[in-house]
């Protein structure tokens, strides 16, 4: 029983990180209408920035986090200006392929500049752990989860309480209508895409403290984010939260209870995306 609760807890903690990555992607999909296949690469940039700040400047990732978020927000906004903006009216295929190209470009630039090695970040709280009754949790995991919750709470407060957030949701629901009532759609897109990338970068900083930074670290998180937004329904921002928990917990359960779990948990996860997609498409059929 203890093992079961420990598993649940691990899954839940993991889902905070997933929700962070996925809500960023959901913002790009829901508001801008762009399925950003380069989302994982923005996460990767965040992870490397945190590593760089720590390794060269001795700044703790938790301190560099806000700066990293702002920097990658700017990178995202720039990306929107020079590329995404030009394919907004193009066929979905072109949008998809453009972000795909962007992802390959960023990933390989990182490989070229930094090599393929993984870089770990050392922090004072690395080895710490916290006990909750019989259960124990690693310090970094707890911190990452706490930060994810705070940031997500902030994001949803912005979306539901501020003028900008209302504009974003309006654009997400009806592009043409928003234009008619005087919303500067282009500006909303720019901000939403920037925030989307910034959220990925924040997740990247946390990934750097939990795992490591590497050019390919983003891919698996991006794939999981896709799975989550597909489960939640495209562009459904609130659905992202529970879908993240479902994914995190089911992964943890597989790891604990399926023999040779580590290796198979990936397959289970991909089967889950696959099954969701196929099930949805057949249920949606007339």
């Amino acid at each position: 029983m203890e093992l079961f609760f420990q598993t649940l807890l691990n899954g839940l903690l993991q889902s905070g990180l997933y929700a962070l990555v996925a809500s960023g992607l959901a913002l790009a999909v829901g508001v801008v209408g762009i399925v950003n296949f380069a989302h994982g690469e923005f996460l990767m940039i965040g992870a490397f920035l945190a590593w760089g700040a720590s390794a060269y400047l001795g700044v703790d990732p938790l301190l560099s986090l806000p700066l990293v978020a702002v920097a990658v927000f700017a990178v995202g906004a720039l990306t929107y200006r020079v590329s995404i903006r030009h394919v907004l009216l193009a066929p979905e295929l072109n949008q998809m392929l453009l972000t795909f190209g962007l992802g390959i470009l960023l990933q390989n630039l990182a490989l070229m500049l930094l090599g393929g090695n993984t870089r770990t970040v050392t922090t004072p709280y690395q080895g710490s752990s916290l006990s909750l009754g019989d259960l124990s949790v690693g310090g970094p995991k707890m911190i990452a989860f706490g930060l994810a919750v705070v940031i997500l709470a902030g994001l949803y407060a912005v979306l539901y309480r501020t003028n900008l957030g209302r504009q974003m949701r309006a654009v997400a629901q009806n592009r043409r209508g928003s234009q008619l009532i005087g919303i500067d759609v282009d500006r909303v897109y720019l901000i939403a895409f920037g925030v989307s990338c910034g959220l990925a970068a924040v997740a990247g900083v946390l990934v750097a403290t939990l795992l490591f930074a590497s050019p390919t670290v983003g891919l698996v998180f991006a794939l999981k984010a896709f799975a989550i937004i597909v489960m939640a329904g495209l562009g459904n921002l609130t659905g992202v939260l529970w879908a993240s928990v479902v994914l995190g917990v089911s992964e943890a359960l597989v790891q604990t209870y399926v023999p040779g779990g580590g290796g198979w948990s990936d397959a289970v996860f991909f089967l889950l995306i696959f099954a969701t997609l196929v099930f949805r498409s057949f249920r949606g059929a007339r």
Partner: peptide, 21 residues
């Protein structure tokens, strides 16, 4: 370069989509 030579695929894909449909 040893690493990241696949960058050409990313670059070419983006440029093709934007300018060479």
């Amino acid at each position: 370069v040893k690493n990241g030579y696949l960058v050409v695929y990313g670059l070419v894909l983006m440029l093709t989509i934007l300018w060479l449909p």
